[in-house]
Amino acid sequence: MAVGRNIAAPLLFLNLVMYFIVLGFASWCVNRYINAQTAHPSMGGNGATGFFLTFSMLAAVVGIVSKFAGGHHIRSWRTDTLAEAGSSSLIAWALTALAFGFACKHINIGSWRGWRLRILEAFIIILTFTQLLYVMLLHAGVISSRYGPGYRDADYGIRGPADEPGPKAGTAVAGTRV
């Protein structure tokens, strides 16, 4: 079994659980924010709160969906499933990194922030780095086949014109018309 697969599988599960937690906290905070209940003891916020919550929810939803593709890839662990898992996890990481930037701005602006917003900030910061590690583990097969399926498999995508499947010889009956 590949080294990358042994490390990527638990990290996939950890990130999936963390993305669900982020989705729960961000959804609760967005509900309070929409209802203009920012004075709630566990809410608070500042000018960056709306953007931070929006991108946190978006990153969480895309991250959850990418973990389903990643689970399929880890189960089959082939080169053709790597493209699906790798691209969706890279998009999830990019959105998480964007939410990370808003989390940093949210912390930098200051003012009073409730415990749910602070937990959401912490989870987004942690997820940014664990998702990056997960993306790197998925693509570790590029370095060596020991770490997983790579892009340099000998038989992947290399077919000549003579290798194309065509009609089988001897199946047609000469002189008949259909």
Rank of each mutant, 00 (worst) to 15 (best):
62 V>K: 05
63 G>M: 10
63 G>E: 02
65 V>E: 11
65 V>R: 05
66 S>L: 06
67 K>G: 13
67 K>S: 13
67 K>F: 00
68 F>S: 11
68 F>T: 09
69 A>E: 08
69 A>D: 09
69 A>S: 14
70 G>T: 07
70 G>D: 07
70 G>W: 14
71 G>K: 08
71 G>F: 07
71 G>S: 04
71 G>W: 06
72 H>M: 15
72 H>V: 15
72 H>T: 13
73 H>P: 00
73 H>D: 02
73 H>L: 04
75 R>S: 15
75 R>Y: 15
75 R>W: 14
76 S>V: 14
77 W>I: 06
78 R>E: 09
79 T>M: 02
80 D>E: 10
80 D>N: 12
80 D>F: 05
81 T>I: 01
84 E>D: 12
84 E>F: 12
86 G>M: 06
87 S>L: 15
87 S>I: 15
87 S>W: 11
87 S>P: 00
88 S>H: 11
89 S>K: 03
89 S>L: 04
89 S>W: 00
90 L>M: 12
90 L>S: 02
90 L>R: 01
91 I>F: 09
92 A>S: 01
92 A>V: 01
92 A>D: 06
93 W>I: 05
93 W>N: 04
94 A>P: 03
95 L>E: 04
96 T>W: 07
96 T>H: 05
97 A>F: 12
98 L>T: 15
98 L>G: 14
98 L>Y: 14
98 L>N: 11
99 A>T: 10
99 A>V: 11
101 G>Q: 02
102 F>C: 05
103 A>L: 03
103 A>N: 03
